[in-house]
Design a protein around this nucleic acid. Structure first.
Lengths: 199, 199
DNA sequence: CTAACTTAGTTAGAGAGACTAACTTTCCAG
DNA sequence: CTGGAAAGTTAGTCTCTCTAACTAAGTTAG
């Protein structure tokens, strides 16, 4: 019988996935830089050399977590968009809210996703996929099928805004700025303003 | 003679400052997480135990660099503002440009400044000082002296925007989004839109 | 069913880094 | 000139990443 290609459990369980889960838990618990391979091994109950049968190095473990993150965020974005008319302000706002809420709920993973260090082609592609959802909605709003330069120029400030908001909140700067505005209101307002045609 | 409290050079030169400089250079060269105390020591030509006479630990060395950063950014902001009428769109935009340009020129330091890990009271205060310049300008624009809630609510989206822009550029996501708009134009546009009174 | 191969784990250890303890040198005050 | 504090040093501990060499378990061919 041909191997099912996905997760075949050889000796123990699916160690790779267990390690990714342990890594993720640690990254959330203590931040990406304080994560250690050794500790993930202890959590998974294997020797410290075991991960190297599944990952080239420490970085690759973190990348695996970031990949998971992009998958989840893309999924959540699609779900959020589907509740509103394509290309509507509501659809676009909803994606922004998802973005920030994802960061709030998974600060460690979110930071990894955009860390800039350890960039992989896979990671870049996953990011591309995620941003694609946004570009698609903005194009729809502009009555276009193709994603051209105008779409890019319109979408980018939106991304910029929610990205900044996500980071400021993660790093505790939002409270510091004493802004208690409701997240949805804030994003909706910024979306409307940034999408406004310059007068 | 009473000690001058600032930098008295005992044995060798002012090792503390030399270490901060070495740390900064390394942080810029290889990123904050890959920075090592040992390497800073080699750069400064001292033993690996020497830093611990000046800093409690590795983190404190990084914090010192971040403090420098806040000082420089505050200074640059003030300089930029002074070229325009107080509270004008130009003054506010100019600060945004300074923010992003500082991040471009000092990505490692910038990341440290907002890392969220190793937060100190000193660091928070320095950040406060920096943001104060912005709040002051926004208050002026709104014809106010006091920095009240309305000022905060107006200023925060601006910060959010430039913060996001800074991070996206640092992490190479701006090119990825294929946006080649001139930085000043982009910031000026966003400033105008985000300052617009919601209709 | 078993021999040969592959996969996934093990232990042991090298090399680097953070930090500590105990010692030494230098500077300064009285 | 002498005692004490400041600022270095060496040596050593502990932890971490990653490698090498070995072993056990599962897979496949004959």
């Amino acid at each position: 019988m041909a191997k099912v290609k996905t997760k075949t459990a050889y000796h123990h369980g699916d160690l790779r996935q267990q390690l990714v889960a342990a890594t993720r838990a640690l990254v959330e618990a203590k931040g990406p830089d304080l994560f250690s391979v050794s500790e993930a091994c202890r959590a998974a109950g294997v020797s410290t050399a075991a991960p190297y049968k599944h990952f080239a190095d420490r970085t690759e473990m973190l990348v695996a977590v970031a990949m998971e993150g992009f998958g989840e965020m893309a999924e959540a974005s699609v779900a959020a968009v589907s509740k509103h008319p394509p290309g509507s302000d509501e659809a676009i706002s909803a994606m922004g809210v998802v973005y920030v809420e994802y960061a709030d709920a998974n600060p460690g993973v979110f930071k990894m996703m955009f860390a800039g260090d350890h960039q992989t082609d896979d990671l870049e592609e996953a990011g591309h996929g995620c941003y694609g959802v946004v570009l698609h909605q903005v194009a729809a709003r502009m009555g276009k099928i193709e994603i051209d330069d105008a779409v890019m120029r319109t979408a980018f400030p939106l991304w910029t805004f929610v990205h900044g908001l996500a980071f400021l909140r993660i790093d505790g700067k939002a409270e510091f700025a004493k802004v208690d505005t409701d997240l949805e209101d804030l994003v909706a307002m910024a979306t409307r303003q940034l999408l406004a045609v310059p007068s």
